[in-house]
Amino acid sequence: MKHFILASILAGAMALPAYAADYSIMAPAAPGGGWDQTARSLQTALQKEKISNRVQVMNVPGAGGTIGIAQFASQQKGNPNALMVGGYVMVGAILTNKSPVTLKDVTPIARLTGEYEAIVVPASSEIKTIGDLVAKLKENPGAVSWGGGSAGGTDHIATGLIAKAAGVDPTKINYIAFSGGGEALAAILGSQVTAGISSFGEFESQIKAGSLRLLAVSSEQRIQGVDAPTLKESKLDVVIQNWRMVAAAPGISAEQKAAILADFEKLEKSATWQETMKTKGWADTYLAGPAFEEQLAKDIASTETILKDIGLVK
């Protein structure tokens, strides 16, 4: 046994080429979640496209990514090889968890993918349009129960924004948080709640099968091939997407940042990455550089306002 182990160590040491890891990507979540999948897909694509020789993925799970970002900001300062995956959920989690480390403490590179929110009702529901739902909400906010993901997450934020846009007190919404997309979907299908709100992808196959009725989506323009109005054209000024991004370490030089940015420009255009997004069902909402930084600042500001309105952040 001992011989075997020694032999395998030697063999392994010799088999590994002697170059250093090019990028190490932190997924601030446990293996398997959305961020982890993004990190591991990036790993595969960056290596396959020869943008990077060897990419490592590290998982630091906990508290909506706030544990990961804190560790990333403190330990990787100035390291041009360190990357971190993150997303919109982190924006809310940083606020609700009162995290001392925020997205200002890392260097955002690019928004990679995103998913729009969809508002649905069971097919048997008497609510036919988003207008019906808003009318019911105005009449008695408590009587409209919304099923969605965890409290303070994207679904909850979107619900608050809708109520606010409709002129209803966001603290009065009857939002029922479920522990996962699956559980929420089951409650909606079983007509346990009035309406459901979650990423469009979660509902897509149910909508196609006719067991859920899609009332509206939260995108800027109508989604291609989807027969539903946007919230905006329904006179509710709400545009929100649950995006995922990649960020670099704080304290890197402008050249280092530009180099990373160039690598991701290359990745975005590559066939491998496009193919990955297609098989995973991720929408390409790529946005990089100053445009992304501006959008990020906007997202953070609007999220803070609505979380205060709902009462989740003081």
Binding site: L6, I9, A13, P31, Q56
Partner: peptide
């Protein structure tokens, strides 16, 4: 320590799961 190093190596190569690395692990990288 030798056994653990072997475990570390298996995790890192087969599962691409990076357990915390120190001086010994860095020799293998």
């Amino acid at each position: 320590i030798v056994i653990c190093l072997a475990i570390w190596w298996v995790f890192s190569v087969v599962l691409s799961l990076s357990l915390p690395a120190g001086p010994l692990e860095n020799l293998l990288q």
